[in-house]
Write a protein that binds this DNA or RNA. Structure first.
Lengths: 339, 339
DNA sequence: CTGTTAGCGCATTCAT
DNA sequence: ATGAATGCGCTAACAG
């Protein structure tokens, strides 16, 4: 007689195979200390019956759920989607499964997410922390008492894997300076985000070192505001001759504004954006960008998480992954397009 | 004395609250049949102790894991990312959690994924079936014996939610015909994909009804092949005057080829693509596309899944979600851009 | 190498 | 309205 669920369980297999349930358990856990013929036989019975062990029951005993949690602000953002892709595939190789939760960058939702993971007893946690980290969030994390690795933004007392935002921004801006640009507008960007703040620091450092003016504007939230800002800056006495976009959208809006107003790029205004995007190479001029090492970031984070789960490297580690300047046309470099 | 995991369990709460464990169980399950004061008190103790019920244990008893599985070819594809986003959020509202697995459109990996879900006893399954559906895949699905809803591509004996590929393609091509186009090239596209085949049928139906030639080419796998095909078709005796792109990449490649060869769009060649993409409105000319109702599709699918999980609507249902023609410049319509 | 036994944490009878 | 007892399916001693 099967369970009401219709699925055979370990005992059914044991009975059908004429062995004890421990033996079956050993078989599904690798087959060590089981006689070869018995092993083969039990495996056959398992196959015949279509038995698959119930993970819930295994978890209950072993305190391992073979599950890891991932919290990201949004899965439709290509950056985070890549993080999820790498984490899923890595977890799978380690015989784990990925539970995905999104936070919309809201702390209360993220706390809620943590509670859910607490109930599901995930073996580890990968997360992109919210912009503000209140005490209650930190309390939740502590209570979770599973290995945690933060991605993209730092998190108190946790291992983290970040992009080298500051240095990458500095190099990008230096590239504009090397092109002879003197008045570079830094256009953002939610300043509550760690990444944005770091990029602004990198910008500032490059510009100050070169003895140029610091021109930062963080109010570019959409096309309209970007247009207002860029036109205003252009019209000013000493104008601007380059724009450093702090993130995708501000770069794209800048591109659109300049194109719509027939302002020559890169002749009059150079553009470099932080973060690559799907058609950056297809626009004309194509857009020079800082390309983050998303896959490396995700890979390092997941690896680190499993190290922690395995008990190694108990001490939190901070890893920074380098970015690459992808030189295209908009910075002023003479670039041949493949197409 | 706590469990070694350091987390209190239901009995710890019962002891601390001075009640039986059944009462605590009732409290965490809604609190029915519990005296108001007891309820409040137990809730306090739960909060103080930071107790969160162990889902594995609950599953073991109730045969419900509060988990649903999602299998998609890739999470970095914007279409599937949107599906995942909607499914995650919907599941969350229903107090469920999403386990994400990717199949890379390979049947063997998908079978593997199903096996994993079998072990985790997910309450239901949302999946994008692989291109070929062998018997062993169908066997696996049957064995799973949980509600299943397929998305984007049909699946034998299962509920499914699809895009109206054929009709949408027909309308798009008809739009080109209405613009007076006579020789419309249909450019794809992996013909093993259900969606692609349906779109070709829609194209064919429109073109045949109008008494025009059927010009289909499915060999456009990358820029180079798209370029070869388009240039060849252009050079032929009776040329072409429009291209219908069967999916994102073929549309984008067509755009790039025509731009690089200075062929006027839409003047000489009109373009309509199937599936919207992020900068379609920012290119010049902007690209007219068929926009699939991704969110509606995902929403309907998840709703349907939970209906099945709830026991309603046991009979498989097929739902088709309508698409919208987003008219921009590339088809030949006189469109004003907002920017 | 193999089987017996005893829980893991919770929900569910069934009494009270 | 409440509690005591039982078992979900599995793993981990332990004994043989």
């Amino acid at each position: 007689m099967r369970t009401k669920s219709g699925r055979p369980n370990l005992r059914d297999v044991a009975k059908a195979a004429g062995v004890g349930s421990t033996t079956v358990s050993r078989v599904i856990n690798g087959g060590r200390y089981v006689a070869p013929e018995v092993l083969a036989h039990v495996r056959n019975v398992i196959k015949d019956l279509g038995f698959e062990p119930n993970e819930a029951a295994r978890s209950l005993k072993s305190a391992r759920t073979r599950t890891i949690g991932l919290i990201i602000p949004s899965i439709t953002d290509p950056f985070f989607a890549h993080v999820a892709a790498v984490a899923e595939s890595f977890a799978r190789h380690r015989d784990h499964v990925l539970i995905l939760l999104t936070s919309r960058d809201q702390e209360d939702l993220e706390i809620d997410d943590l509670r859910v993971f607490e109930r599901h007893r995930t073996d580890g946690l990968l997360l992109v922390p919210p912009r503000s980290q209140s005490k209650s969030l930190l309390d939740c994390l502590r209570r979770l008492s599973v290995p945690i690795v933060s991605i993209d933004r730092p998190l108190a007392k946790c291992s983290s894997v970040l992009c080298d935002n500051r240095e990458a921004a500095r190099k990008a801006v230096q590239h504009l300076i090397d092109h002879g640009r003197k008045r570079i507008l830094c256009l953002g960007g939610d300043p509550r985000l760690y990444t944005i703040r770091e990029r602004v620091k990198g910008y500032t450092s490059a510009v100050v070192s070169a003895g140029l003016d610091v021109l930062v504007d963080m109010e570019a939230a959409d096309y309209a505001s970007a247009e207002r800002i860029v036109l205003k800056r252009l019209a000013q006495d000493s104008g601007i001759d380059a724009v450093f976009g702090l993130y995708n959208q501000s770069t794209i809006h800048t591109y659109e504004v300049l194109r719509n107003h027939r302002i020559a790029v890169p002749k009059r205004i150079s553009i470099i954006g932080f973060d690559d995007f799907s058609l950056a190479a297809s626009l004309r001029p194509s857009i020079t960008v800082v390309q983050q090492g998303v896959k490396e970031i995700a890979m390092a984070a997941t690896q680190l998480l499993f190290d922690h789960i395995g008990g190694d490297a108990a001490a939190p580690r901070q890893i920074e992954i380098g970015s690459t300047l992808i030189v295209r046309q908009s910075c002023g470099c003479p670039v041949q397009h493949k197409h």
